[in-house]
């Protein structure tokens, strides 16, 4: 049963929201979500790459020979990732500094390659666009929410644009464990658990 284009878009927001449902692309999820701002920035960068590579892969799907398709996907994805990297350096330099190595690492993010292989290579341009946009926004939401939880408890602040907003006031003692790497795993696990709890009802 074919889904409508709207359904292709919305499936990325809940049914197949990447880190929580597909459990893919965990490397940036765990590493960059120390603040909300980092999460959103990383998510948007990934979304851009996803949409562009999905469109290009889907429009070239008749030309690309099956045997070298992965090589072609990687060329396309790597190109867009480098574009994002350069553009971020030129316009949002502070954010680029915080995300650092994780921007080039979008190339090896399984979500991007996975969508090219599993979806864009078999579907039309409009559908691929909707799919990429949906998955990308879902990824951004997931990163932002994880970043929000970790930053809120780990630092007592929420950073949306450059300036951290104090939420709990100055007497708050930050739960530093949350912004450390093990805290990321625990936090992700608890959020997965919550999602399953909500989803199972």
């Amino acid at each position: 049963m074919a889904k409508s284009i709207a359904q292709e878009f919305t499936k990325g927001l809940w049914e197949e929201i990447p880190p929580f449902r597909l459990v893919l692309g965990l490397c940036p999820v765990l590493a960059v979500t120390k603040t909300v701002e980092n999460g959103i920035g990383m998510g948007l960068a990934t979304t851009f790459v996803l949409v562009c590579s999905n469109i290009l892969v889907s429009s070239l799907r008749k030309i690309i020979p099956g045997k070298v398709r992965i090589a072609c996907f990687i060329i396309i994805i790597a190109t867009f990732v480098t574009v994002v990297e350069l553009v971020m350096q030129a316009f949002t330099y502070p954010l680029f500094l915080k995300l650092g190595i994780f921007i080039p690492l979008i190339v090896v993010n399984c979500i991007v390659l996975g969508r090219s292989e599993a979806f864009a290579f078999k579907n039309g341009i409009v559908r691929s666009l909707a799919d990429g946009l949906g998955i990308g926004i879902g990824f951004t939401l997931a990163l932002a929410s994880l970043g929000a939880v970790r930053e809120l408890f780990g630092n007592g602040t929420l950073t949306i644009w450059e300036t951290p907003i104090q939420i709990f006031g100055p007497s708050f003692q930050p739960f530093t464990f949350m912004v450390e790497a093990p805290g990321a795993f625990v936090c992700l696990g608890l959020m997965l658990c919550l999602m399953n709890l909500v989803g199972s009802k």
Partner: peptide, 13 residues
């Protein structure tokens, strides 16, 4: 195909 893709990518970058 690979050559065209790569050169397109190189040019864009």
């Amino acid at each position: 195909v690979l050559v065209i893709l790569s050169s397109f990518s190189g040019g864009l970058l």
